[in-house]
Amino acid sequence: MKLITHNMLTSKCLKGVLQGYPLAINATDVKVTEVDFNPEFVSRIIPKLDWNVLWGAADSLGHSEGLPKTVEPKYEEDQEFLKKAHHVLLEVEIEEGTLTCPESGRQFPISKGIPNMLLTEAEVQ
């Protein structure tokens, strides 16, 4: 699971949970694979993200070094910034670990890079 996916996942479908976002990450196996860098594409992804959540996720995996906490205007011209964003969004992958709902504490396992977000009928809103 890449951090871009983490940026879009919520546990709000759990009964009694309002936001369910962001899910806390506890990774036991993180893999980094090289992905072709396309600055134009990364620039188009940035506005679709919750940057704070991305920064927090990268930080919890020890990959926040050099990554600014806020997105500057004209970020699309800043190659260094785009490279960092590209790295945390697309190259860092969680293979094994858990995601935890910030409100209920319910844990969702990640196995072989696939998060298991299935709920029992009793857990659903």
Binding site: T5, T10, M117, L118, L119
Partner: peptide, 9 residues
Amino acid sequence: VNMDLTSCF
């Protein structure tokens, strides 16, 4: 993602 439809996005 192993989930029901799009429930957790």
